[in-house]
């Protein structure tokens, strides 16, 4: 089977992102970039499916030349080849991302597209669903393993493929939903789907020689008009500094008499 996975370049998910003093955008000074954690889960699940069913994994992303770093990491994790479509984050919205990936789907004809559920920069959580609708495909969003990544060693996998269908566990409000989708299908991966592997040194070396195709939006015939534009940034409301309490009695006293919450 052929699987297409996303491999977006994002700011370090553990970095506390701040705005520039003129609020024109984020202060990227000293901020590192990484492969989107949710995309790592998507890639890991694709690798597990390939180990069982054979086939090919194509990593896709939209970004500038610097995004080849994260693309190479996806290849080092084990993806067979990559496609990087040229595009800057501030010239994208989720809709344009979805339409671009839909074009790549038409070009590659995979059985499955696995997206990271959301990118940790824009946090929109839309691209997989939009893409599924553009392509008229079924979707299994927020795929996860019901026992969490700690329990991944045995038992049922979060995603399973059989008889032209993909079965996914979905984390939804109030419990876990098991959904079956006819392939080709769109899946989005949640963090608890699996524990992504670290690339080994030999695989990092091998990844340098794996094919990485570079395309433009024009090559794909994608209309680059945006439906959603971010027109301004601001800082979230700051919480005023709190106080330290010495013990439980002082805490209770404050909650009853000062905060008046009890």
């Amino acid at each position: 089977m052929k699987i297409m996975v996303t491999a977006k370049r994002v700011t370090d998910p553990d970095a506390r992102i701040r705005l520039k003093s003129d609020l024109s955008g984020i202060d990227s000074e000293g901020v590192e970039y990484k492969l989107n954690p949710f995309c790592e889960n998507a890639i890991e699940e694709a690798l597990r499916l390939k180990a069982k069913h054979d086939g090919e994994i194509v990593a896709v992303s939209i970004g500038g030349a610097e995004a080849t770093t994260e693309m190479r990491r996806a290849l080092a994790m084990g993806c067979d080849r990559g496609i990087l479509v040229d595009g800057a984050d501030d010239a994208l919205d989720a809709d344009l991302v979805a339409r671009t990936i839909a074009k790549l789907y038409e070009k590659e004809q995979p059985d499955l597209i696995i997206f990271g559920k959301q990118a940790v920069d824009g946090d929109s959580n839309q691209a997989a669903q939009l893409c599924a609708e553009y392509l008229g495909l079924g979707q299994a969003t927020f795929a996860a393993h019901p026992n969490g990544s700690a329990g991944m060693t045995g038992g049922e996998p979060g995603l399973a493929v059989a008889d032209g269908k993909v079965t996914a566990m979905r984390e939804v409000d109030g419990g876990v939903e098991v959904v079956e989708v006819a392939m080709p299908a769109v899946v989005s991966a949640d963090l608890r789907l699996n524990e992504p592997r670290l690339p080994t040194l030999p695989n990092i070396m091998k990844a340098k020689r794996k094919p990485l195709e570079q395309l433009s939006m024009a090559d794909l015939g994608v209309d680059v008009a945006l439906k959603v534009k971010t027109i301004a940034f601001s800082n979230p409301p700051e919480r005023k500094a709190g106080v330290r309490v010495a013990d439980v009695d002082e805490l209770l006293n404050k909650l009853v008499n000062e905060a008046k919450v009890l």
Binding site: I17, L19, K229, T230, I231, F233, P236
Partner: peptide, 12 residues
Amino acid sequence: WAGNVVGEVEIT
């Protein structure tokens, strides 16, 4: 960015 930034968006 995990709530560290608030964006104002215009839908066109």
